[in-house]
Simulated scan of single mutants.
Amino acid sequence: MNLEALRAPLSKDLRPLSVFLIDKGVAHQISEQQGEQVVWVMDRESAVLVRAFYERFLAGELEIGAIAGESRAQDRPAHPKAFLPVTLLLIVASIIGAGLTSLSPELSSVLSYYQLTAVDNGYLLSEAPGQYWRWFTPVFLHFGFLHITFNALWVWELGRRIEFQQGSLWLLLLTVAVGVASNLAQVWYTPGQLFGGMSGVIYGYLGYIVVWQRFAPVPAYELPKGIVIFMLAWLFICMVGFTEMVGLGAIANAAHLGGLVSGIVVAVAAIVLRTLTAR
């Protein structure tokens, strides 16, 4: 933010204007300088928009207060009592997938990327041409109580924020896109190995929220820095093989990284599209 859009006296409450600008996708910052409030933007076009909105507000042509009230209602942090059908459906489906995994490999084969065929010494994994649902459904497989518990908690913590802020359909589309990307990344990196879990999707949620909050901040996407640092640190720890060294088993690191990258890409694309359509 290096371009000054306008100055206003300290007595003027610019919070409603700020909420309105966020709603319109105009990235900005407000600071105090030489006894005045200064609104900073990224480019000249945004500066022109900010001045135009402010002048209309001063002239009584724009009811920023009413619009800001609506925006605050839309941008409030996700509340546990909100109805979040997709978030809940993902958790329930993951619990069912964990149950299938624990009961028998044959049942989990319905959701896994590879088909499992019983042989004398175990199971043979083979690809299933044309069964494209397998690109996504491994996200519901979970191996053990800790695996499903950990992932369900993070789906609830991150997924509900996205569904609350941007709607159930958007969360569903984002989940499918990130799930497919993370699964195919894992298949490419370690072909012929059984894998599963929502971890790749969860890292996709993380990347999406962090990028969105950086360029188009909303209260629902305010994550404590400790959470972001912990998850990125855990990603690094897993990638260097620490979990295998201490006997916790192999981790689908490519799925984690693929999910994170794809979540970032979707967020950038969504923000750019929103900015273009708002002009």
Rank of each mutant, 00 (worst) to 15 (best):
N2I: 04
R7Q: 12
S11Y: 05
D13Y: 02
L14H: 00
L17H: 03
L17D: 01
V19N: 12
V19Q: 12
V26E: 00
V26A: 02
Q29K: 14
I30K: 03
S31G: 09
E32R: 10
Q33M: 09
Q33F: 09
V38M: 01
D43T: 09
R44C: 05
S46K: 05
L49M: 13
Y54K: 01
L58G: 14
G65W: 11
Q74P: 05
F83P: 03
T87P: 08
L90A: 02
G97M: 09
L103T: 13
S104M: 08
S108A: 15
V119I: 15
D120I: 12
D120A: 15
Y123I: 10
Y123Q: 04
Y123F: 14
L124V: 04
E127C: 01
A128G: 05
Q131W: 13
P138A: 08
P138C: 08
F140S: 01
F140I: 07
H142V: 00
I162N: 06
E163N: 05
L171Y: 12
G179A: 04
G179L: 03
G179C: 06
A181Q: 02
Y189S: 15
G197K: 03
G204K: 08
Y205K: 06
Y205E: 04
Q213T: 05
P219N: 07
A220S: 15
E222K: 14
L223A: 04
G226M: 07
V240D: 01
G241V: 10
T243S: 14
I251G: 00
G259N: 06
L260W: 10
S262V: 04
G263I: 08
V265G: 03
A269V: 12
L273N: 13
